[in-house]
Design a protein around this nucleic acid. Structure first.
Lengths: 125, 125
DNA sequence: CGGAATCCAACAGGATACTG
DNA sequence: CAGTATCCTGTTGGATTCCG
């Protein structure tokens, strides 16, 4: 493999790996799951309860993806019934800050965006 | 609890406005379009050429959304043929930094994630 | 409890053709 | 040039059922 380090302009190419990562990381559920796991490890059912509206399928699927990306660690406790804990890996924790910044932006600009919507929708009837 | 200002925990509720914003803002094309417009205003065709793989439909659609959100400004120059310029609004520019942080993270962790994939896929066969 | 597997509806999004 | 409109397909993701 030719390891030229990726530059920021590579992002605009379809085959750019960073772009695929951005797709996954900017994903709706990913952001929320990492948000919950920022508070510490959690069980499957805890995640499911804390993230309103997520289906069992999407939770499983997203967690598998995050595990494969090396962002989340999964531990199975072979009790009866089985207990499974999820927690952020070290790399996962480095993602907390950028995502939190995005959440902060969303919360801070919520009102201004709603205003913009009102203006736009009014102008267009 | 009846509070007007959104707190970070509200994000986990389906009806949270910030969550919907996050959905849009974390969107694949949104990130890339804002990335291009960070370098300055651009015409429709320029955006289309710089973002590999985007269809005309998705470009139009995403730009309309961004305009409605008040993040991008659209100027029509009534020449022949018509020229349309897009540029970030002031609010749009406040989004640059959080998104750039995310892009930086993706670029910095690209290799580590690929390693994680290899490990994961090998373990699972 | 923590999933996997299947089925199916809804929607995203590409291709194409046409327009001011 | 910068779109709009239509059609049509692939994927997403919910609901349901079953399992270790």
């Amino acid at each position: 493999m030719v390891t030229t380090s990726a530059t920021s302009s590579d992002l605009y190419r379809t085959d750019c790996a960073a772009r695929q990562i951005l797709d996954r990381v900017g994903d709706r559920w990913t952001v929320l799951i990492i948000g919950v796991l920022s508070d510490g490890s959690a069980r499957f059912s805890q995640l499911r309860r804390r993230i309103e509206g997520i289906s069992q399928k999407m939770l499983t699927q997203t967690l598998r993806g995050l595990e494969r990306d090396g962002l989340v660690h999964r531990t199975v406790f072979p009790e009866v019934p089985v207990r499974v804990e999820y927690e952020l890996t070290q790399m996962g924790r480095t993602l907390e800050e950028p995502l939190r910044a995005l959440q902060r932006w969303a919360l801070e600009n919520e009102d201004r965006i709603e205003e913009a919507h009102a203006t736009y929708d009014h102008r267009a009837q």
